[in-house]
């Protein structure tokens, strides 16, 4: 599973990365987590409001930081 956290580096993006990691660990599956911070890369993934969460190329959340439990659901 490839998890990407999109955002230019503001506090919300960091928080989302932490939560995504926690949620993914809880699932016990293999995953890689990448922070996408460059604007062209963010735009190319189809996200306009940061922070965004992209899992295996699919936009799962954007513009807000979901709870760890909610992220776990999004990762399933």
């Amino acid at each position: 599973m490839k998890i990407e956290v999109l955002g230019s580096g503001c506090a919300k993006c960091k928080l989302l990365a932490e939560r995504a990691e926690e949620a993914a660990r809880g699932l016990g599956t293999e995953f890689t987590l990448v922070k996408v911070t460059e604007y062209p890369d963010i735009v190319a993934r189809g996200v306009m409001s940061t922070p965004g969460l992209v899992v295996d190329g699919v936009v799962k959340s954007q513009g807000h930081v979901p709870t760890v439990a909610a992220i776990r659901e999004l990762l399933r």
Partner: peptide, 9 residues
């Protein structure tokens, strides 16, 4: 560019 949709809110 990929037009984002309102999904994920």
């Amino acid at each position: 560019f990929e037009a984002s949709t309102a999904t994920g809110g």
